[in-house]
Design a protein around this nucleic acid. Sequence first.
DNA 1: AACCAGGCTCTCC
DNA 2: GGAGAGCATGGT
Length: 291
Amino acid sequence: MSDYIKEKNKITITNLEHFNIEHILECGQVFLFEKCENYYEVVSGNEYARIFTYPEKVEILCTNEDYFENYFDLKTDYSKIKQNLSTHLLLKQAIEYGYGMRILKQGKLETIIGFIISANNNINRIKNSMKKLREQFGTKTVSKLGEYYAFPTLDQLSVVSTEQFVSLGTGYRAPHLVKAIEQLKQFDLEQLSVLETANLKNKLIKLQGIGSKVADCILLFSYYRTDVVPVDTWVEKVYNKYFSQNNQIKNREIIREEFFNIFTKLSGYAQQYLFYYERQFGKFNKNDKIG
DNA sequence: AACCAGGCTCTCC
DNA sequence: GGAGAGCATGGT
């Protein structure tokens, strides 16, 4: 377990080795956050947190300390995960770069909506759309930390029209969102977590706008299936650059299987370190193959 | 000005 | 059931 102290509306993390809020939030797994002058702001469901980083500690001031203990997955010990993955040279580098990254346990609904919007999109635009969605349709909430807009509930989302989704900048995904929200009324997202991963993925894929890759993101980032490997353009680049022997593989299902064969139960973590690393340094060293 | 972004749906074979 | 075009939008 990580070293942390939980108090009313506050979590203090004393070991910064496995908790770096910039790497956690900026690594591409979450869209409902914002960098402010001296802290990061996070919304999940109707909960809210501000994360302050000091030289010797991190303080999470929040509406609900139990919620964010789970959200940041503080009970999981990352030293063994990092140690295990670091036997691979490329992973060792990626982990050194993204130190303190953690896979989050995000709210199901916000993760589904966020990753439907993510299709063929970029992270800044996704974040903007999600922020507008929150501010226009979420409940304005007053807390001791200040005012914030919660992420809309399913009921609140179900009144959003296609045109309104377009105005949030979601483009051609707008009708998919409206349809998926309608379909979600027949889903019990919490109850689905009892399903085995393959069955759960089959359920998610039935929703409009969710294909294999988006389903994998939902599995990894909100259902905590940390063996799942979402393969997007960046992970595809990583595979063809460092793992493929000679031929370039375009079939993402094959790439997914190959990564799983290498990293097995830790594939989700490995994928996330590599994604973050490649987005940062991908422009360099096209011929820098490893293993 | 083409090309890209955490891809998906729909059509056609 | 597998490949390919088309898809909104803003940044580079």
